[in-house]
Design a protein around this nucleic acid. Structure first.
Length: 439
RNA sequence: GCCCUGGUAGUGUAGUGGCCCAUCAUGUGGCCCUGUCGAGGCUGCGACUCGGGUUCAAAUCCCGGCCGGGGCGCCA
């Protein structure tokens, strides 16, 4: 007999035979009768064991199977109004596929919570919990929605190398890798490759892939390995085009999640906002002014620090009733290491760069790139970068590079913010950070 | 990198010099119970991060190591 899921059994006739399987979540032994709660991917079903029917020995054997063991049940589906699924199973045979050890390093349905490090150390058990799996089902929908959007808009999904010779920005945040006889690094961004592909004439590309930052971050919104969603597009008139595309992408993606992840969102008690177009834009200078009005004080130069970011997020929520807004026209002095950022024609102290803020936190960073070879060289010079180190990249600018721009979006952070998770690690199956390399 | 903070049963905690061979919950073992679903009742099991020091006395105070957590810088 073929094994079916708990939710499929709902459609069987009363009394029909079936085979179900899953993890023995708990045993409620009342003496003469016992109830087994068995969990599969879809739900939890109940198996009823009556001592008079099974006999004393078998009853004891089954009731003593340790929690979280994998078992297989063949039995009769019996309709009842006493379970959520509307049926229970009267077993003909129960097979222990794999017995779980005791005690569990982490309870799956215990009444006490475990802390995040304990949960991550035992992630396979942690992920057996419904609300934890919901996160990853929604994350899947988020990715699905993005791919759907990009494909619709004529973007080509590409894969660029993660083992690279040079980084997109300074060298301090690169992980070193031994690459045969050479020294190599893990890519911190697909930036330079995306741009090379613009010279190749692909016009619109996107990539969903890991990025690595060897920074001493120890915060609830940083990890050393994260999934970066990047897109790049050519023949743009300015960064407005990039912001428009980003807005549509975010809207499309979130409405996809909302449409297909209704059940999971409800279970996690999350209300999703799908931003309307156009998303509110505030210049960097405008942000500083708002902050001054709000009474924010700085020790030296006014900047948008973490506290300020949250204040702005609250401000926009209150005054414009949205979780989203752009900070535009980032000053050049703040984007110095981003040597490929295009500066404003009329005011070179400003760039075309913007951030998209989501619930008071940076989600997206992007802008128009500098496509003119000589200007690019000049900007690299300003921060002391050697042309030789970027030879392969620069070459792509010498033989016909269109105007272009794009963004990078932190996927894990998107999930975190979307679901109001207290730590970005909740949005990652096996997070990597300054003190975690396993599992 | 800087600042703050913590490490007590499998899990989560109480205890800040003697009342502690350490509290409670959860878990787990045994017994009872035929409709449980945070089941219930009785009963047992299980722990002070490591090293040094102070003291008549250390889970508790001091120093160092190891391992965590949070904030900031920064960033996706």
């Amino acid at each position: 007999m073929k094994r079916i899921h708990s939710t499929d059994a709902v459609n069987l006739e009363d009394g029909e035979k079936c085979k179900l399987a899953g993890w023995l979540q708990e045993v409620k032994n009342l003496g003469g009768i016992a109830f087994l709660k068995v969990r599969d991917r879809e739900d939890v079903f109940q198996v009823v064991l009556v001592k008079k029917e099974t006999g004393e020995d078998e009853f004891e054997d089954i009731v003593n199977i340790p929690r979280e063991s994998v078992i297989e049940i063949e039995g009769k589906k019996t309709d009842t109004d006493q379970t959520d699924l509307g049926y229970e199973v009267h077993p003909i045979s129960i097979k222990v596929v794999c017995e779980a050890e005791k005690p569990l390093p982490l309870g799956v349905v215990d009444k006490v919570d475990a802390e995040l490090p304990t949960r991550l150390d035992n992630r396979f058990l942690d992920l057996r919990k419904k609300d934890k799996r919901n996160i990853f089902e929604l994350r899947n929908l988020l990715i699905e929605g993005m791919r759907d959007f990009f494909s619709q808009e004529g973007f080509l999904e590409v894969s660029t190398p993660k083992v690279v010779a040079a980084g997109a920005e300074g060298g301090a945040t690169l992980f070193d890798v031994d690459y045969y006889e050479e020294k190599a690094h893990l890519a911190q961004s697909p930036q330079l490759f995306k741009q090379i592909l613009m010279s190749a004439g692909f016009e619109r590309v996107y990539e969903i892939a890991p990025a690595y930052r060897a920074e001493d971050f120890d915060t609830i919104r940083h990890t050393s390995e994260f999934i970066s969603v990047d897109f790049e597009m050519s023949f743009i008139d300015g960064s407005e085009d990039i912001m428009d595309m980003t807005s549509y992408m975010v809207s499309h993606t979130l409405s996809h999640v909302k449409e297909h992840g209704n059940k999971q969102l409800e279970e996690l008690d999350v209300e999703l906002e799908v931003p309307e177009h156009p998303i509110k834009k505030i210049t960097h200078r405008g942000c500083i002014e708002i902050l001054q009005d709000l009474g924010k004080e700085w020790e030296d130069r006014p900047e948008i620090d973490t506290e300020a970011e949250k204040m702005l997020g609250d401000y926009v929520k209150e005054n414009h009733d949205t979780d989203f807004f752009y900070i535009t026209e980032f000053p050049t002095r703040l984007k110095e290491s981003t040597f490929y950022a295009m500066r404003k024609e009329y005011d070179p102290s400003l760039t075309t760069y913007f951030d998209l803020e989501y619930k008071g936190q940076e989600l997206v960073s992007g802008g128009q790139r500098e496509h003119r070879y000589d200007v690019l060289i000049k900007q690299m010079d300003e921060i002391g970068l050697e042309e030789e180190d970027f030879e392969d990249y620069l070459k792509a600018f010498k033989y016909g590079m269109p105007t272009h721009g794009g963004i990078g979006l932190g996927l894990d952070r998107f999930v975190q913010q979307m679901l109001d998770l207290s730590n970005i690690r909740e949005a990652i199956l096996f997070p990597r950070d300054t003190s975690r390399l396993r599992p």
